[in-house]
Amino acid sequence: MIIYLLCIFLFLVGLYGVVAKRNLIKIVIGLAIMEYSVNLFLILIGYVKGGAAPIRSGEMADKAFTNFVDPLPQAMVLTAIVIGLATTALLLAIAIRIYKKYGTFDIREIKNLKG
């Protein structure tokens, strides 16, 4: 149970970065940390003690062997990781465009509209 709590604490650290920081790069880092902690939480739920990786090869090719970890959250997280890379790149592209227009990463400066 303490592993779940530590994992959610990592989520809270990322949330702190998103809410309290004023640098756009730090906000992107906070979002990425939140995403990683959610991925880890899904995999932690699907773990079975003493289970093998869900691949039927070697001695696990036998039909009677069923002590695998859950393959469903692994499949979901596999797609989520690659989506995370693309969305992080999109956020960084927006950040670097803002830097070119305003000359800073500070979100308080960006609020003042310039013509």
């Binding site: 690659v82 890379l85 693309a86 790149a89 592209a93 670097i96 070119k100």
Partner: peptide, 19 residues
């Protein structure tokens, strides 16, 4: 996936060159 990530990287490089 390969083409998508390569496109993102090339877009960043082109942006840098143009700026």
């Amino acid at each position: 996936v390969a083409a998508a990530i390569l496109t993102i990287f090339l877009a960043l490089l082109i942006y840098k060159d143009e700026v």
